[in-house]
């Protein structure tokens, strides 16, 4: 396990527990009662730590190396009943954006999301979850496919941003994202967008226009990462904690600003402590939202979606 700085108190307890287990195995003494007590203590500590995270710690938690990524969610939610589909039909297959049909309790759903890697090799293969224009175009192609066959769309958002590379610019990164915003606004099937990790700017929003936009508890969503914000506004990387506070980027903040529709709670200690529980919570959420959205007529749903985004913003009128 990898532990973040603020997870140290938890790590210490777990280490203590491991040592006791080893010692007990050697000596044959029954320590089940002590172990149980320690278990309770660990849960208590996890609850305490995760209840009081600062916005910056929340950002760190969203990037926890053991946090589950998009494909893990899809595999679990569909119980392996997932057919990955590739390519944007124009340039190539972007490995940072994945998608395909999956079956959830017999209901076919189009899943789409940014994908990060789990080790150095796959991180590079997935371009660190930073899609190129063809990634957004692949996502759009799959959404259109879903629309044609009347299947709901679920997107998993987890990206440090759209890739700012030379070829990305040549192939129109801006146009690709813009096109998705436009098309998603009027897609005739239900769209549910779930931020499962990092929600960085246009790269996240490019698959983030939905009837329901939901954030997991330990994620962030904003116009820029706290590091880049610090570097631009303070001209130094040292103000990221301050930027994280100022940007009001946590799920609670975003809910308060009415920019998202809901928060999905995570298992005690974050998604990475109990991925199976996390997947099951997300699955329940997806099913209930699909059921709700299916009740509405497409035109009604689209109108509500457009009205929702059009009401966002704070202006003063003299």
């Amino acid at each position: 396990m990898t532990y973040l700085d603020f997870e140290k108190p938890i790590a210490e307890l777990i280490e203590q527990q491991e040592k006791m287990k080893q010692a007990a195995a050697k000596s044959g003494v029954d320590i089940s009662k002590t172990l149980q007590e320690l278990d309770e203590k660990i849960v208590e500590q996890r609850t305490k730590v995760y209840k009081n995270l600062t916005p910056w710690q929340r950002v760190q938690a969203s990037r926890h190396p053991e946090r589950p990524y998009t494909l893990a969610y899809i595999e679990a939610i569909t119980e392996g009943n997932f057919m990955e589909l590739h390519g944007d039909r124009t340039v190539k297959d972007d490995k940072a954006m994945v998608g395909g049909f999956g079956s959830v309790n017999g209901q076919t759903v189009m899943f789409i999301g940014q994908q990060k890697g789990t080790n150095t090799k796959t991180r590079q293969y997935r371009n660190f979850g930073m899609p190129n224009p063809e990634g957004y175009r692949k996502a759009l192609r799959l959404m259109k496919l879903a629309e044609k066959f009347n299947k709901p769309v679920v997107t998993f958002i987890d990206t440090p941003g759209a890739y700012p590379g030379l070829e990305a610019e040549e192939r129109g990164q801006g146009e690709a994202i813009a096109r998705n915003l436009f098309e998603m606004a009027k897609l005739r099937v239900p769209i549910i967008c779930i931020i499962i990790g990092e929600g960085a700017s246009g790269g996240a929003l490019g698959i983030g226009v939905g009837d329901r936009v939901l954030m997991l508890e330990n994620t962030w969503y904003s116009v820029i990462s706290p590091e880049s914000c610090s570097s631009i506004l303070w001209r130094s990387w040292d103000f990221k904690e301050k930027a994280a506070i100022g940007l009001k980027l946590t799920a609670d903040d975003m809910m308060g600003q009415k920019l998202i529709d809901g928060i999905i709670r995570e298992p005690i200690g974050g998604a990475h402590t109990s991925p199976a529980e996390m997947f099951s919570i997300v699955k329940t959420e997806i099913l209930s939202h699909i059921a709700e959205l299916k009740q509405m007529k497409p035109d009604e749903r689209i109108k509500q979606r457009i009205d929702k985004f059009c009401s966002m913003g704070v202006v003063v009128e003299d």
């Binding site: 915003l181 929003l205 969503y221 904003s222 100022g246 600003q257």
Partner: peptide, 14 residues
Amino acid sequence: EAAYSLMQMAKTSA
């Protein structure tokens, strides 16, 4: 204006 600004992209496009 952080996320409010971000959502103006969705708002204008919609």
